[in-house]
Design a protein around this nucleic acid. Structure first.
Length: 254
DNA sequence: ATGGTAGACGATCTA
């Protein structure tokens, strides 16, 4: 089973890329973030590729979805027990796996209101992950976490020292979630340099490979036992009018 | 302390 997560930065602006990607990669499950549209505005053509969809949309900002070749059941919009006006989390059971598409808040500036909202969101995600792990299912949580877990995940750590995406409190929150027993699929299957998943549109960051690894796939023990390969589809970031994020893939032997 | 780019949207806001 192939599961891929991708922050598309507007699904309508990225329609040709997403269509191309579905055709070429045929993922079983595609977890999307930053749709930037409501459900009625989601491009129907994407479902013509043979996908079912669980969609938690929002106008202008945020919006997350699960596309799956398999039937989708047990859909949950938003993190349970967390008040949030933003559409940043959708979860469902499909093809024998529980999957979630998560778009963690960016945080804007250290100590800003947005930063504390990010930490609150991560704390709620931690609590919910603890609940989900109690189900003892195969679980894949994919998304844009807006956290580079360590300096190995940053091309230029000095420039990002203490900044949002790299601050200690964010990394502490990440560590707390993974220490529940969730595997960082890409890290665990990578030898040598970590692949980046996001490159800023500004200052020619992609051309310089000045990126960060902030999009992740977290696997429960049952899913991690089945992990075969991972891959970052960096080529998608190099296209004209690309999202600033590349798709991140894992293949499970189930 | 701001800039650089992108997207939605129609002046700024988020990233």
């Amino acid at each position: 089973m192939k599961v891929i997560t991708w922050n598309v930065n507007s699904v309508r602006a990225r329609l040709p890329h997403v269509e191309l990607f579905l055709k070429e990669q045929q993922p079983d499950v595609l977890l999307l973030q930053e749709l930037k549209c409501e459900e009625h505005a989601f491009p129907a053509s994407l479902l013509d590729f043979g996908y079912n969809c669980a969609l938690f949309g929002q106008k202008t900002y945020n919006g997350v979805a699960i596309l799956s070749k398999h039937p989708i059941e047990d859909i949950q919009n938003g993190i349970p027990n967390f008040e949030d006006t933003a559409a940043r989390y959708v979860e469902a059971f499909t093809g024998g796996v529980r999957v979630a598409s998560v778009y963690v808040p960016n945080g804007q500036e250290i100590d800003s209101k947005a930063y504390h909202y990010k930490l609150d969101f991560l704390n709620a995600l931690y609590s919910h992950c603890k609940t989900l792990l109690g189900f003892d299912e195969r679980l894949v949580i994919g998304g844009d976490f807006n956290i580079a877990p360590s300096d190995e995940d940053v091309c230029n750590p000095a420039a990002w020292q203490g900044q949002v995406l790299c601050s200690q409190l964010e990394r502490d929150a990440w560590r707390k979630i993974t220490y529940l027993g969730l595997a960082d699929a890409v890290k665990d299957s990578t030898t040598g340099a970590m692949p980046y998943t996001w490159w800023d549109y500004r200052k020619g960051a992609f051309a310089k490979d000045d990126g960060l690894r902030i999009d992740h796939l977290l696997l429960s023990p049952n899913a991690a036992d089945a992990l075969k390969t991972t891959k970052v589809h960096k080529n998608m970031r190099g296209l004209e009018r690309a999202s600033d994020h590349a798709p991140v893939e894992c293949v499970l032997t189930i």
